[in-house]
């Protein structure tokens, strides 16, 4: 096993992802299986190879710094879980 249950809990916390206690061992087993698959990559020498992030090796396109979007606040907030006075509401952060 590559990953222990505690490590899975730590990763889940990093991802802010709720995982049921009874599922932790299953994820540890599955992720360990995936990591085992990945060890195959270690057999290939990749020294000096440039990592590939984009199939076309394109640079990010630039555009003129002008406003293109109109104000969609009402439209977007209409589908939000909780809003008030144009603001998204979350539980109190600062006491």
């Amino acid at each position: 096993m590559f990953l222990t249950a505690d490590e899975v809990k730590k990763i889940a916390h990093l991802a802010r992802l709720g995982v049921n206690d009874q599922d932790i061992d299953g994820y540890a087993k599955d992720l360990s299986g995936m990591l085992n698959l990945m060890t195959q990559m270690g057999d290939l020498n990749t020294d000096g190879i440039n990592p590939m992030a984009h199939p076309m090796d394109q640079a990010q396109r630039l555009r003129a710094d002008v406003v293109t979007e109109c104000d969609n606040r009402e439209k977007f907030q209409a589908i939000a879980p909780q809003v008030e006075a144009g603001l998204y509401l979350v539980p109190k952060v600062i006491e």
């Binding site: 440039n50 990592p51 992030a53």
Partner: peptide, 8 residues
């Protein structure tokens, strides 16, 4: 490592 393998 995966991105390098992707290149190859």
């Amino acid at each position: 490592k995966a991105q390098k393998v992707r290149r190859l």
